[in-house]
């Protein structure tokens, strides 16, 4: 039994107006506990709509969503429970910051959960450290921070609720390479430490290939495929046809294979590719590169 399960999930926007549009169409999906899933797809492919169903922000037009085996629309209490089980970080989360101090903004979620003062204090300090926000910044106004810092404060605000499932919608959008790296690393670190299930929506295949162990590809409101990173990238041609790019290194490998160089094709990170290339070359030239 997966931690997230959807049954024939369909959602239609603006029913009964000329703007009517099916955002997601008959989605059947099962995500196992502890996975780190990358979600990719075009703008308008239904990624954001799908993830907003997981914590009950959107009510499906038809179909069901089960979190830990329980239908989240069964009762008001179960919908509210889903909000705490599933932590959702929106795109540009720094725009939702509102408190006077960083500390109080991170504490907003835990406070809504009704935790004790001590527990809140522990969680705020703990997550602030985890996202690299130092002690002296906690009493500053969040509006004085840099863009990257604000983003990390906003992510900490959700992490502090310690959700079993953490979903991030394009957490690195609009950041410089250094900021991206930092955010992705801290997410990976959080995943490793807590063992929670993490879903990351991203446009960057490179990032997803490096961090996720499973990939969900959305196309035209439907699930195109869901599987292990290697399996998904085997369908590189189809993915390229959809207008999404597979990682650069995967394209290089595919082209090399087309030209008759016999190396394995499950390569999607530069680090691993280097290893394979060196092995390949040393075999070919009798160990000259060892």
């Amino acid at each position: 039994m997966g931690i997230i399960k959807t049954e024939n999930l369909t959602y239609t926007y603006s029913v009964g107006t000329p703007f009517e549009k099916k955002a997601i169409d008959n989605i059947n999906l099962e995500i196992e506990e502890g996975e780190l899933v990358g979600i990719i797809g075009h703008t308008g492919s239904g990624k954001s709509t799908l993830i907003q169903h997981f914590n009950g922000l959107l009510k499906p037009t038809s179909g069901r969503i089960l979190i830990e085996g329980e239908d989240i629309w069964k009762s008001k209490a179960s919908t509210r429970q889903a909000r705490f089980t599933v932590g959702l970080v929106f795109q540009y989360p720094e725009y939702q910051i509102f408190e006077e101090t960083v500390y109080r903004d991170i504490a907003f979620g835990p406070k809504n959960m009704g935790l004790t003062e001590d527990e809140i204090d522990y969680r705020v300090r703990n997550t602030a450290t985890a996202v690299g926000i130092s002690e002296e910044l906690l009493q500053r106004s969040p509006f004085e921070l840099s863009g990257g810092q604000k983003r990390r404060v906003a992510i900490a605000g959700v992490m502090a609720m310690e959700p079993k499932i953490l979903i991030l919608d394009e957490p690195t959008a609009g950041l410089d390479p250094k900021g991206r790296e930092k955010i992705l690393n801290l997410i990976k670190e959080h995943h490793k430490k807590t063992g929670c299930t993490v879903l990351i929506v991203s446009h960057s295949m490179e990032d997803i290939a490096r961090y996720a162990n499973k990939i969900l590809v959305m196309n035209k409101s439907k699930v195109f495929c869901y599987g292990k990173t290697a399996e998904v990238f085997k369908r590189a041609n189809e993915i390229s046809e959809m207008g999404l790019t597979v990682p650069q290194i995967t394209r290089v490998i595919n082209e090399l294979k087309n030209r008759g160089i016999n190396i394995e094709d499950e390569i999607y990170t530069v680090k691993y590719a280097k290893e394979i290339f060196l092995k390949y070359l040393s075999e070919k030239e009798g160990g000259a590169y060892d």
Binding site: L57, R83, F90, Y95, Q96
Partner: peptide, 26 residues
């Protein structure tokens, strides 16, 4: 913004008048 705050457990639908007004600050 409402969705984002709801995702952090903010509650806009219940409570007394004063609580509801306070809930608008975020």
């Amino acid at each position: 913004i409402m969705s984002a705050q709801k995702a952090r457990g903010a509650d806009f639908e219940s409570g007394k008048v004063m609580q509801r007004i306070k809930a608008l600050i975020p």
